[in-house]
Amino acid sequence: MSQFIQQVINGLSLGSIYALIALGYTMVYGVLKLINFAHSEVFMVGAYSGFYAATFLGIDALDQSGQSFPLYLALVVLIVAMLVSATLGMTIERLAYRPLRNAPRLTPLITAIGMSLLLQNLGMLIFTPNPRRYPPILREVRFDFGGVIVTNIKLTIFAVAMALMVGLWFLVNRTWTGRAMRAVSMNLDAARLMGIDPDRTIGKTFAIGSALAAAGGILFGLDQITINPTMGTLTGLKAFVAAVLGGIGNIPGAALGGLLIGLSEQLVAGYISPDYRDAITFLILIVILILRPEGILGVVRQEKV
């Protein structure tokens, strides 16, 4: 029993990271109907920005002398990474997707795959392909509940992810920016007629989604101990599966999908075989797309002729 609870706790913390990344996919898909493959690399760059920011702030010396990293500096690391990723996300949109706004829908998809390859290989050149240990911006504290181990890191991951998601919900549903985003996602031309600048709104959507991915990247590094330039590929794909599972374009759906995928992965790995962990996640994607493409929380949209 304690093993089951342990797997569930680990699954939920992994799942909340997936959820943070899934939000970026879902938001971009909402406004542009584009699977932004480069999002997985924005996540990777976010993790590395956090890595370099923490290193710059002198975490190595603190770590070696056994001191913990001050909390306010950890917050600085988080903000720096979110800013870097937001800028990167907006740049990608400006350079690679905006020129293709009126192209057939598959053209930006291929461009997105190309951008993802480009960023990943640039990452290997700049960050080197060697896996790095993620700096311990949070000193680990373990709590033992009758054989079930919960660390403050897992709790922080869960808390930060939830806080960011609630913040996003407010932003989308309670602010003018959010209203503009929803308008653009419903109908870009109609939104333009209502005086909304779609380019700016799309830019903001990319910035917010990318910043969340960066937060996901830092939490991922803390949780998974190592990072490398190819870390985004599989994680990003799984986060995308989470977005589809919850209902693409739907923000609570992405959160739900992320948690479900995290749980299913951990339970499959723990009780069936880790060898089939990835295969089953892809199977979930296929089954959901074929049986209920609008996802768990999505709304069926009639196709217009």
Binding site: Q6, Q224, N228, L234, Q266, G270, S273, P274, D275
Partner: peptide
């Protein structure tokens, strides 16, 4: 006997199983 795949970063499921 537990397994993982090269490039994986999450090993908590396997280690939890071995712990038990």
């Amino acid at each position: 006997e537990q397994s993982y795949g090269q490039g994986d970063t999450d090993f908590s499921a396997q280690v939890t199983a071995i712990k038990n």
